[in-house]
């Protein structure tokens, strides 16, 4: 498409402004974590490392981080298995109700989190509690997995649509069984899509607040729940700000990793 010089310049300006709007609030958080003023007034009144020192010693934040990582791994593991199975069925077979499946799988992410949240919460209360399973890490993982499945499913499905099934047929014609074919032909083809999907699923679970609120119960605190309950406390707010700054800086790592591993330019699909 031959764009005029003016149009190109306008688009470049839009891109720059867009990125500026995206990054200014994040920059404010990072700067505020060194601000002596507890209420984050602007411009900052002075420089301090006090909040960072206190944050390192904060047991609540560390425990919450560990819980979040556990929940993220659990939900991602379930999503990887279920999402992959489903994407293979949809990509490689024709069956009755295939369209319904493609709607069913996006439903958990397309319906607002609060709907998923209260539905799961009341279901846990009426069905799981009587058999002795109470709200906890397990129920958080179950809840997160419902909307993580679609992320893995989308990534693997997109990959499968681009790799033809004839490679698999060739492998089987040459005498490899179903499992051998999967190990040597199919899996290598979808590996990077699995990685990208798994990373995004983990990210989604790691940052989830609403479904977590309704499925966690009193004893389990993920990092977002910890942040939510501490932000309004004047003494804790600066420490939350430090945790936030760390999260912002740390978030570069997984995105960069996904970019390196995935051949997909988008580094993963939502």
């Amino acid at each position: 498409m031959r764009l005029s010089r003016g149009a190109r310049a306008a688009l470049a300006v839009a891109m720059t402004l867009g990125l500026a709007v995206i990054y200014v609030p994040l920059g404010v958080v990072i700067v505020s974590s060194f601000n002596t003023d507890k209420t984050f007034g602007w411009p900052p009144s002075g420089f301090t490392l006090e909040w960072w020192r206190r944050a390192v010693d904060n047991v609540g934040a560390r425990d919450a981080l560990a819980t979040s990582v556990k929940a993220g791994f659990g939900a991602t593991a379930i999503a990887l298995v279920l999402g992959t199975l489903l994407s293979f069925a949809v990509a490689r077979y024709r069956f009755f109700g295939r369209d319904v499946v493609s709607i069913l799988v996006v439903l958990p992410i397309a319906l607002p989190g609060i709907v998923t949240g209260i539905a799961l919460s009341s279901a846990i209360q009426t069905t799981l509690r009587p058999i002795g399973i109470d709200f906890g890490l397990f129920t958080v993982i179950i809840g997160h997995a419902t909307f993580c499945v679609v992320i893995v499913y989308n990534n693997v499905l997109a990959r499968l649509r681009r790799t033809s099934g004839s490679l698999e047929e060739a492998s089987m014609d040459l005498g490899a069984g179903v499992f051998t074919t999967f190990r040597h032909v199919t899996f290598p083809a979808v590996r990077s899509a699995l990685f990208a999907g798994g990373l995004l699923a983990f990210a989604l679970s790691f940052d989830e607040v609403i479904v977590t609120t309704f499925t966690a119960g009193a004893g389990v605190q993920t990092l977002p729940i910890w942040i939510l309950s501490n932000l309004t406390r004047p003494n804790q707010a600066p420490i939350v700000n430090v945790v936030a700054a760390v999260l912002i800086v740390a978030s570069v790592v997984p995105v960069w990793l996904a970019q390196r591993v995935s051949a997909d330019t988008a580094g993963g699909r939502l």
Binding site: Y23, L26, V29, S251, T265, G267
Partner: peptide, 15 residues
């Protein structure tokens, strides 16, 4: 792409 994707990882509440 990295620049646009990164904020997706920075906590919703923090933003």
């Amino acid at each position: 792409v990295v620049a646009v994707l990164t904020p997706l990882w920075a906590s919703y509440l923090v933003k």
